[in-house]
Amino acid sequence: HNGKLCKLKGIAPLQLGKCNITGWLLGNPECDSLLPARSWSYIVETPNSENGACYPGDLIDYEELREQLSSVSSLERFEIFPKESSWPNHTFNGVTVSCSHRGKSSFYRNLLWLTKKGDSYPKLTNSYVNNKGKEVLVLWGVHHPSSSDEQQSLYSNGNAYVSVASSNYNRRFTPEIAARPKVRDQHGRMNYYWTLLEPGDTIIFEATGNLIAPWYAFALSRGFESGIITSNASMHECNTKCQTPQGAINSNLPFQNIHPVTIGECPKYVRSTKLRMVTGLRNIPSIQYRGLFGAIAGFIEGGWTGMIDGWYGYHHQNEQGSGYAADQKSTQNAINGITNKVNSVIEKMNTQFTAVGKEFNNLEKRMENLNKKVDDGFLDIWTYNAELLVLLENERTLDFHDLNVKNLYEKVKSQLKNNAKEIGNGCFEFYHKCDNECMESVRNGTYDYPKYSEESKLNREKIDGVKLESMGVYQILAIYSTVASSLVLLVSLGAISFWMCSNGSLQCRICI
């Protein structure tokens, strides 16, 4: 991952900044910058967002509201009850120091605090018919004063009620008058409520006091790749198909172990950190130390980045220098085999997901714990399936590479015959000098055995068991695999060879 928040398929997220979902939807004055928000790819909250409900109280069923919003990608904020005409018999300019803005008392931008007009609070009834052709999110509140005197001074009615009804919602609220500790300079409380109004449905408000009335509502448009994440990451000019709280993932790998919460087309989250597919040879310690064997393909974004291909070729060293050249036929066979294998694994496992966190309130801790156990169970199954699949494929890959290298080895052996000696570690020792032209003939299969047989015969008789390297004779190393990324691999195959001279070296080696 890149540690950044990015656009998702070209669409920017909605960053709530210092506000949370509650503050944004109710219209906390400190969240005025969010009022123009219309569309987004996903919503970003920060872990310690401080601006929620400015007048103390709870947004009821907040967790369910977050779940609903996680599939919303755009909205239209509109005046559901026009301020100047909807409440002619009531005062609608209630403000509070708890919702101060720029040093002055204020109130929510989407709600109206209705109080008595003169000395009376006549029963009010108002309704709205949803003609938007889509779901409408309606929010309101109920004020709970701290004393009967406060109730009387604001609403005149000691036994007030609030009723809200639609086809799918029907509740009646009565204020709970009680002494409470002071929070944000208030002994009173406000509880906030919401409902989704279906197209064509009607919502009716009736009250004799204590109503925090809707002013603006939201017509919602769903987008199934949307979601809500909690993150401290910063926004950058970048684009992605998959976003996590820790950063964007741009990967076609089937798995990731970065974060379980994802938005967009994302690899499946697994616990494993070692889900690797081999593309090189079986481990040979001396070669492995030099980083030549054991190439791997990573299938977990965050564990290993991208696929690494092994390729086969020849390396030689003689009086004229040293050089490398790919054996294109065996390399292409290996590439085709690995590509098919990788595609097979991805096809089997690479279903892209959006995974969002589930919200539970403080009273639902047991449910949250149960949900976590269920999620953990599914996660263990996914991890096991992934590891088992790759384990089985790896064994076949190792066998496949062994065969490829063996074929190259036999190709060289059949040409050199007794003009060189096998020394048991995949290397041959020449009994004759071999210049670049000679080396090329070994690589392309045109090695002239009779041409060098007499010199080889004489050297075999002279050496008589002495280690060949100390006599200045020449080696050919018969097994060799270097490691390159897919891009470098293609470039390498396009070149005939490249040279690395070893000044004054008397050794001649050709490596497979």
Rank of each mutant, 00 (worst) to 15 (best):
F498K: 05
G313S: 02
L363C: 01
D402N: 10
N369H: 10
D402W: 05
N436Q: 15
V473D: 11
T240Y: 03
C511V: 07
R509V: 09
K462S: 07
L253W: 00
K268I: 13
V345Q: 04
Q507C: 08
T446G: 11
H432W: 03
T244E: 02
C427D: 02
H316W: 07
V466M: 11
F430P: 13
C238R: 01
L489V: 12
A297V: 06
G302W: 00
H259N: 14
L275P: 01
F293V: 13
W382K: 04
S322N: 11
D380S: 15
S497C: 15
I284G: 07
A478P: 05
A334N: 08
K373A: 07
Q320F: 14
G280R: 14
V356Q: 15
I479S: 03
S497Q: 15
I346C: 05
K457D: 10
F400M: 13
A233W: 00
F498R: 00
R276P: 02
G424I: 01
V442H: 05
E368R: 08
G247F: 02
F353V: 03
Y314W: 01
N318W: 05
L403W: 03
S231G: 08
N232R: 11
G424P: 10
N369G: 13
G310Q: 14
S272K: 09
T331D: 05
A495H: 04
N283D: 11
K433F: 11
Y314T: 05
L253F: 05
I287A: 05
S414N: 07
Q415L: 15
K413N: 13
L477V: 07
V442Y: 11
F378M: 10
Y314D: 08
E455S: 10
G504A: 13
G465E: 10
T354V: 14
A326K: 08
M235C: 08
L416N: 07
L398V: 10
G302P: 02
V345W: 04
G465D: 02
T273N: 07
G306T: 07
N407W: 06
L370I: 08
F360Q: 09
G291R: 04
K268G: 05
A233M: 15
S286D: 05
K421S: 00
Y312T: 08
